[in-house]
Design a protein around this nucleic acid. Structure first.
Length: 576
RNA sequence: CGGGACGUAGCUCAGCCUGGUAGAGCACUUGGUUUGGGACCAAGACGUCGCAGGUUCAAAUCCUGUCGUCCCGACCA
C-alpha cells in the first residue's frame, strides 16, 4: 500500500475526550474515529488490526474444533422472555420497534438464538460434541460507555457455544476453549492470565475470565503467586480467620446512640465499639422482597456474591424509606436482632460465624444493641461468603498473602449447564433412548476490546509498538526523498515491490513530507519494522532497518529484502 | 440515575468574571525557500461561539431550559 493513496489521519494532539493512553493512541494513530459516545468508526488501519485479531481467533477456534456460523443481530423478544433474560438483562438490552410496533432486541449475546438453533437441529447424542461460534457486532446499553473501545455501546465479539451430551463432555469442551483462549491472547502478544470468575446474569456454575494486567482496567483481580490462585474480586475468597469468640457478656442490652449512623461514628468515644465488633446490616430488595445482608463492621459486602446467593431477577439496595418500611428504622440503626419480620431473609457472612459480644442497630432510630451473640440472637440466618477480599489476606489454599491487580477482561468462558437448553427445549436422545437437555458452555472474546488492550500494553512515549501478529502492516518503507527518479525513490520502489511480491505486508510512505514527519508517524502508528532509505547511506549502497523501539542496523540495499524476511521470521517465532 | 466539569474554526485551546468589531497555535489552500526526527516566509480560506428561549440599545459573555461530551459515583447505613 502507498501511504499517499491510503487514509491514515494521524493527530499531533490528543482529542480532549480521550482519557486513557490506549484511547488517545487509537485516535492519534488514525485507527478509529468517534461518531458519538460509545460508537466508533474503524478507519483502514484499525480495521486491518481488527481483522488480524479476528483471524487469530478463527484459526484457534477452528483448531479447537469449533464451527463458524453467523446469527442475526436483530432478535425476537419471545426467546428472551422464555429464558427470563428479557427481565434479568433488561438494563443492557437495546430494544427496537418495527412499523407494526412489534418489539425486537439488538443482540448483546446469542445464547437464546443458538439454543433455538440447537433445539431444532440436535436430536441425538451422536451429533455432539458440537461448538458453534461467530464473530459479530453486539449491542449493549452500557451504564456508562467509556475509554473508547473498552466499554462501547456497539462492539465486536467472538461468541462460541458448546453443546454436549454429558457434564463430563461439557467439561472437556470447556477445557478446550480455555486452552484456545490462552493461545489466542498469547498470539496477540498480550500478557494475560485466567482468573476464577462470577457467572453473573449469564448463569452457570464454572467460569474463568482472561485478564490483561493494566491499571486502567475495570476489574480487580486477587492472586497468589506461590500457589497460582487467581480470581476476580467479585468471586475471590481468602483464608481470613473468623471473628474471635469472646466471653459471652450479659444478655442483649439496648443503649441510646443519638445521631450515630455510621460504623465509624460508633467506633469513636463515647461508644468506642471497634468496627470488628460491629455488625453491618445492609438492606436489599430482591424482587421487591426485603433481604438483610450482614457483614462485619470492618468488612465490605461483595454485592456480586450477594446477588449470586439471592438468585432473584432484580436485586437492588433499599432506599431509606424502604428500610423504615421493612424494619421500622432508618439506615444507621438497622439490625437483624429485634423486630425483624419472619418473611425477611437474613444472609450472614461466614466471617461472623460464632461471633459474640457484637453491637448492631436496634431497628429503632438512635439506638443500638450490645452483647449480641449472632448464633443465639439472630434467627433463621443463612450463612454464606459475602465479604470482599482485601489485599494481604492469607490465601485460602496456601496461606500466603494475596496480592491485587487491576486488569482488563478480554475473554470469558462459562460452563452453563442446562439453564438455556431446558428453557428452550434443546434436548436430545441419549444412547439409552432417554431425552435429556444438552449441556452447554459459552465463550466470549471482546475483539475490539482486545485490540485496545494490546495498545494499552504495547506502547512507548512515541506511540504504539504493535506485536507483529496484529500489526496493521509489518513493514513501513520510508524514503527520505520522493523525487520521482531519485536513486532513493527507485530503491524504495524496488524494495517495496519485492517485499510485496514476497507476500509481506508493507506500506510505502511516499508522501512528499519532511523526514521528521514520516518518522513520527511511523513511530506513532507503530509498524514493527521501518526500512529507511536516504541519500547518505544509499551513497554507501546501504539502507537502514529499524525495528520499532529498537536500534538501527545498516544493510546492503541488495540484501534488504532478505534481511527484512529474516527479521520477520525471527520476530514471528518469538510469539508463535 | 446522582454529582462535577466542559461545549468557541478540522484538532488543541484563549476570550466569559467586568456585555460593545470572533481570536491564537496546529491542520488546510496558493506561491516561494527548505528537506535525516512533527520546517520557515508571505498571502488566503475556514465560525449560526451546541441548540432554544429570556434580560438588554447591544449577548460567546448574564439568566432559564434543553441536547451532547468527559470524569466520578451509583453498595459499604
Amino acid at each position: 500500500m502507498r501511504w499517499s493513496q491510503y487514509f491514515i489521519p494521524t493527530l499531533k494532539e490528543s482529542p480532549a475526550d480521550a482519557e486513557i493512553l490506549s484511547h488517545k493512541l487509537l485516535l492519534r494513530a488514525g485507527l478509529v474515529r468517534k461518531l458519538t459516545g460509545g460508537l466508533y468508526t474503524f478507519l483502514p488501519l484499525g480495521l486491518r488490526v481488527l481483522r488480524k485479531i479476528e483471524n487469530i481467533i478463527r484459526e484457534e477456534m477452528n483448531r479447537a474444533g469449533a464451527i463458524e456460523v453467523l446469527m442475526p443481530a436483530l432478535q425476537p423478544t419471545d426467546i428472551w422472555q422464555k429464558t427470563g433474560r428479557y427481565e434479568t438483562a433488561s438494563d443492557v438490552l437495546y430494544k427496537a420497534r418495527d412499523r407494526s410496533n412489534k418489539e425486537w432486541i439488538l443482540s448483546p449475546t446469542a445464547e437464546e438464538v443458538i439454543t433455538t438453533l440447537a433445539a431444532g437441529e440436535i436430536s441425538s447424542y451422536r451429533q455432539m460434541p458440537v461448538n458453534f461460534y461467530q464473530v459479530s457486532v453486539k449491542f449493549r446499553d452500557e451504564l456508562r460507555p467509556r475509554f473508547g473501545l473498552m466499554r462501547a455501546k456497539e462492539f465486536i465479539m467472538k461468541d462460541a457455544y458448546s453443546f454436549d451430551a454429558s457434564d463430563e463432555d461439557a467439561m472437556a469442551s470447556y477445557q478446550r476453549m480455555y486452552g484456545a483462549y490462552a493461545r489466542i491472547f498469547n498470539r496477540c502478544g498480550l500478557r494475560n492470565f485466567p482468573v476464577e470468575a462470577d457467572t453473573g446474569v449469564i448463569g452457570g456454575n464454572l467460569s474463568h475470565e482472561f485478564m490483561v494486567p493494566a491499571e486502567t482496567g475495570e476489574n480487580d483481580v486477587v492472586y497468589c503467586e506461590p500457589c497460582g490462585y487467581a480470581a476476580n474480586i467479585e468471586k475471590a475468597t481468602s483464608g481470613i480467620p473468623k471473628t474471635a469468640a469472646r466471653e459471652i457478656g450479659a444478655g442483649i442490652e439496648k443503649f441510646a446512640t443519638p445521631g450515630v449512623v455510621t460504623i465509624e461514628a460508633l467506633s469513636k468515644p463515647p461508644f468506642s465499639v471497634p468496627a470488628n465488633r460491629q455488625i453491618k446490616t445492609l438492606v436489599y430488595l430482591a424482587d421487591s422482597q426485603p433481604v438483610l445482608a450482614l457483614v462485619r463492621g470492618d468488612d465490605q459486602l461483595n454485592e456480586t456474591k450477594l446477588m449470586a446467593r439471592i438468585g432473584a431477577a432484580a436485586v437492588r439496595p433499599a432506599t431509606p424509606e424502604e428500610c423504615v418500611a421493612a424494619l421500622g428504622a432508618r439506615p444507621g440503626s438497622l439490625g437483624a436482632v429485634a423486630n425483624v419480620p419472619s418473611s425477611v431473609k437474613v444472609l450472614v457472612d461466614e466471617r461472623l460465624r460464632g461471633a459474640n459480644d457484637m453491637t448492631t442497630g436496634a431497628n429503632e432510630d438512635g439506638f443500638h444493641l450490645r452483647n449480641v451473640s449472632i448464633e443465639r440472637d439472630i434467627k433463621a440466618a443463612e450463612w454464606f461468603d459475602l465479604r470482599t477480599v482485601t489485599k494481604g489476606e492469607p490465601c485460602a489454599k496456601c496461606g500466603q498473602p494475596l496480592k491485587m491487580q487491576r486488569a482488563i477482561e478480554v475473554g470469558h468462558v462459562f460452563k452453563l449447564g442446562t439453564k438455556y437448553s431446558e428453557k428452550l427445549h434443546a434436548c436430545f436422545l441419549d444412547a439409552d433412548g432417554k431425552s435429556k437437555p444438552c449441556v452447554m458452555g459459552c465463550y466470549g472474546i471482546g475483539v475490539t476490546r482486545t485490540m485496545q488492550a494490546v495498545i494499552e500494553q504495547c506502547n512507548d512515549k512515541d506511540g504504539i509498538v504493535w506485536p507483529l501478529a496484529v500489526a496493521p502492516y509489518a513493514v513501513c518503507i520510508t524514503p527520505l526523498s520522493v523525487a520521482k527518479d531519485s536513486a532513493v525513490m527507485q530503491t524504495a520502489e524496488k524494495v517495496y515491490t519485492e517485499l510485496k511480491d514476497a507476500g509481506i505486508e508493507v506500506i510505502l510512505d511516499d508522501r512528499d513530507d519532511r523526514p521528521g514527519v514520516k518518522f513520527k508517524d511511523a513511530d506513532l502508528v507503530g509498524f514493527p519494522l521501518r526500512v529507511s532509505i536516504g541519500e547518505k547511506s544509499l551513497a554507501k549502497g546501504e539502507v537502514e532497518l529499524k525495528p520499532r523501539g529498537g536500534a538501527i542496523t545498516f544493510v546492503k540495499a541488495g540484501d534488504a529484502v532478505a534481511k527484512v524476511r529474516e527479521f520477520l521470521v525471527a520476530r514471528a517465532s518469538e510469539t508463535a
